[in-house]
Design a protein around this nucleic acid. Structure first.
Length: 564
RNA sequence: GGCCCAUUGGUCAAGUGGUUAAGACACCGCCCUUUCACGGCGGUAACGGGGGUUCGAAUCCCCCAUGGGUCACCA
C-alpha cells in the first residue's frame, strides 16, 4: 500500500522551513485547500449518479476519437441521472488557437453532443464548479501547490533545459529510466537560502512533486474497460507547475476532477501509463480517486496493418469531415455506438425508434483493443437511416446542409421546393424504401438529371442495341407517353410498342426464344431511361418521367435522337 | 530499450471449461424484377504460434510472435 506518511515532516525545524518556503514562493496566495473545499462542496446527487466530463485542448481540431469519448461520457453520465460537463484544458499556450473553444462546442453539437455544465462559448460558462477554463484557475492550482510545498511534498526546481537535456543523455547512455528522480533531482533538497538566492537572480523555476514512490512497489488500476492493470509506483519528481505558473495536465487533472466532483474519468488509453502519477497526486493531495475508463483509439487499416487515425494523413479523422460530407448526425452516433457496445445493433433492431439513452450502455462491454473505423459500415447505417426519413425531413436536412456547403445546389432546391420534394420522395415513405443515399453530398449527383442546370446530358446507351433501333424506340415513345397515365397503363403502353419494333413484351418470352427478338421490354425501357436521364440505372422510371413532365420528356427524347 | 495493453472470418464482434464457434457489414450465388436498388433464400470465410493444466480449452497457466500505447516545463 502506498504510504505518504513517510513524507509528512516530523522534524519541527523542517516543517517550519517548508512553510517559509511556501510563503516565499507563493506570497500572493492566501487561500487554503480548506477554503476551496468549502467553496466547491461535494455535489448533491442521487445515489449512483455519475459525473463525467469531456476535457479537450482547444487546438482547433476535433478528432473522431474525441467525439467517441464525448458520446460515451455523455451516455454514461446521463443514463445514471448524473452530470456531463465540458472543461477546457488550455494549459499549453503554444498549441492553442483562437476560437478553439467554440470550434469544439459547435463540432460536438453538430452531432448532438451537448453539455449541462461547463463552457458554453469562448468566454462563457454555466455551472457552480467553474471556472471551467483551466487558464482561469491559476489561483486554485497555486493554492494546492503552495500547500504541497508547505507540507514538504513539492519543491521549486531551477534546472535549466540544458541541464535536463544532459541528464537525459546520461541516462540514455547508462540505460537508466529517464526522468527526474533520486540523484537526478538536484533541487530536491535545496536549502532555503539557496532558493532565495536563485529567486533573487530571477531564475526561472518549476514546482516539482517530491515523489515518495518506489518502482519496486506495484499499484493496481481497476479500469472500467480494461480490467485490472498492475503497474509500478511513480517515482518521478514530475512538474506540477510550469515556469509560467500554469499547471501540467497531471496536476490540473487531479485538482479539477476532484473539485468538480468527477466520478468517472473517461479518456483515451494513451493516459494509462501516466496513471501512477495521477495515483500519487491524488494520494498526496488527499483526494479520493475517481473511477477510470480508458478507451482504445479508433484505428484505420493501413497496408495490412492498423494505425491510429491520423490528423495529418486521414481527412476522416476530423469530425468536421462527416459534417461536410453530410452524414446525418444520428447515423454517425449510431455507428459510434455500435463500435462502443456491439450489442447496440441488436438492441436497435428491436427498438427502432427508441431514444439512444434507453440503451443499456455498459462500459464493461467496450472492447479493450482498438477498433478499425469502417466507413463501409457507416455508409450502411447512414443509408438505412436516410431511407427511413420522410421527404419533408430529408428536404430540410438537405437544404440546411447545402446552405453551408453547396450554394448552387441550394438555390436549385429552393427555386421550386415542391419539385425538389417530389424528386426526393421517389420510392420513399413506403414500406421498403430505396437505400441509395449515404450522405447529403451524394444527393446532387444522384438527382442531377432533374435539373438541366447541373445535368451533364451524357447518354449512356447500351451497346447491345443498335442506333437505328434506339431511334425507333424513342420516336415511337415520344408520341405515346402520357403524363396522366397511372403506373399500370403507363407500362402497358411500353409493352405494346415492343412487338412492332422487334422486342419481346415479356422478358420470359425473350428468354425462351432469344433468337426471335432483338431484346425485350427491359431493353426498351432502358433506352427510354437513358434518353430521359442519361443513365442505365435509376429509381422507378415511371415516377421520374411523371416528375419531369410531358414537355421535358419529349424534349429529352428528341434531343437524344438528334444526338445519335 | 523499460513499463503497460491487445490478438476469434476482410471489418465490428458474441463467447467466461463440453456450441454444428452466433449475429451485423462487406463479398459471392439464386429468387423476385422493365434497369438499379429493396426484399427473400443460400454460400465462402475465424479462435496468431508453441508448450502445459484437464476426460475435455477460443475460454485457465507459461513462453514466443505480431500489433499498439507511453516514457516532456504537450495534452
Amino acid at each position: 500500500m502506498y504510504n505518504t506518511n513517510k513524507y509528512i515532516l516530523t522534524n519541527g525545524k523542517d516543517k517550519k522551513m517548508s512553510k517559509e518556503l511556501a510563503e516565499i514562493l507563493f506570497p500572493e496566495i492566501t487561500l487554503t485547500p480548506q477554503d476551496l473545499e468549502k467553496k466547491y462542496p461535494r455535489r448533491n446527487l442521487p445515489e449512483g449518479a455519475r459525473v463525467t466530463r469531456f476535457a479537450p485542448s482547444p487546438t482547433g481540431f476535433l478528432h473522431i476519437g474525441g467525439l467517441f469519448a464525448a458520446m460515451i461520457s455523455k451516455v454514461w453520465a446521463e443514463k445514471s441521472g448524473g452530470v456531463f460537463y465540458l472543461r477546457i484544458e488550455d494549459t499549453d499556450k503554444k498549441r492553442e488557437i483562437e476560437n478553439g473553444v467554440k470550434i469544439i462546442i459547435d463540432g460536438l453539437s453538430d452531432f448532438g453532443i451537448t453539455f449541462s455544465e461547463g463552457m458554453t462559448g469562448n468566454d462563457t460558462e454555466v455551472g457552480d464548479y467553474g471556472p471551467y477554463l483551466q487558464s482561469k484557475r491559476e489561483e486554485i492550482y497555486k493554492t494546492y501547490a503552495k500547500d504541497l510545498v508547505a507540507k514538504g511534498l513539492a519543491y521549486p526546481c531551477f534546472m535549466t533545459e540544458e541541464e535536463l537535456e544532459e541528464i537525459r543523455i546520461k541516462q540514455e547512455e547508462l540505460k537508466l529510466t529517464p526522468g527526474i528522480y533520486g540523484e537526478f533531482a538536484k533541487c530536491r533538497d535545496l536549502s532555503i537560502d539557496a532558493v532565495k538566492e536563485r529567486l533573487n537572480k530571477n531564475l526561472p523555476y518549476v514546482i516539482r512533486l517530491k515523489s515518495g514512490g518506489n518502482i519496486e512497489n506495484r499499484i493496481v488500476l481497476d479500469d472500467l474497460i480494461k480490467g485490472e492493470i498492475s503497474m509500478p509506483e511513480n517515482n518521478l519528481d514530475i512538474v506540477l507547475l510550469k515556469s509560467d505558473g500554469i499547471p501540467t495536465y497531471h496536476f490540473a487533472h487531479a485538482v479539477d476532477d476532484h473539485l468538480m466532483g468527477t466520478t468517472d474519468v473517461i479518456r483515451g488509453d494513451e493516459w494509462i501509463s501516466s496513471y501512477p502519477i495521477h495515483y500519487e497526486l491524488f494520494k498526496v493531495l488527499g483526494f479520493t480517486m475517481p473511477r477510470y475508463a480508458h478507451i482504445s483509439p479508433i484505428m484505420k487499416q493501413d497496408n495490412g496493418g492498423k494505425r491510429k487515425l491520423s490528423k495529418r494523413k486521414d481527412p476522416e479523422a476530423a469530425v468536421s469531415y462527416y459534417h461536410e460530407m453530410g452524414y446525418p448526425k444520428e447515423a454517425v452516433i449510431e455507428y459510434l455506438m455500435t463500435l462502443a457496445n456491439s450489442n447496440f445493433e441488436d438492441w436497435r433492431a428491436q427498438n427502432p425508434t427508441a431514444d439512444i439513452n434507453e440503451f443499456p450502455f455498459e462500459l464493461s462491454k467496450m472492447s479493450p483493443s482498438g477498433a478499425l473505423f469502417d466507413l463501409v459500415k457507416l455508409t450502411d447505417i447512414s443509408k438505412n437511416y436516410i431511407s427511413k426519413l420522410n421527404c419533408e425531413t430529408l428536404y430540410n436536412m438537405l437544404t440546411s446542409w447545402a446552405k453551408e456547403y453547396d450554394k448552387e445546389f441550394l438555390s436549385l432546391l429552393e427555386k421550386d421546393p415542391q419539385y425538389a420534394k417530389r424528386i426526393l420522395n421517389i420510392e420513399r415513405e413506403i414500406e421498403k424504401p430505396r437505400k441509395d443515399i449515404a450522405k447529403l453530398s451524394d444527393v446532387k449527383d444522384y438527382i442531377s438529371y432533374f435539373y438541366d442546370e447541373i445535368w451533364d446530358g451524357k447518354l449512356d446507351f447500351p451497346e447491345n442495341i443498335n442506333k437505328e433501333d434506339i431511334i425507333n424506340i424513342l420516336n415511337t415513345y415520344k408520341d405515346i407517353f402520357n403524363e396522366n397515365d397511372d403506373k399500370e397503363t403507363w407500362f402497358e403502353r411500353i409493352r405494346q410498342m415492343c412487338p412492332p419494333l422487334g422486342f419481346a413484351a415479356m422478358p420470359k418470352e425473350y428468354k425462351k426464344n432469344p433468337g426471335l427478338y432483338k431484346g425485350h421490354v427491359g431493353d426498351v425501357s432502358t433506352v427510354i431511361r437513358v434518353a430521359a436521364t442519361g443513365r442505365r440505372n435509376t429509381p422507378d422510371l415511371y415516377e421520374i418521367l411523371m416528375i419531369l413532365g410531358k414537355e421535358k420528356v419529349t424534349k429529352r427524347l428528341l434531343d437524344a435522337i438528334n444526338k445519335l
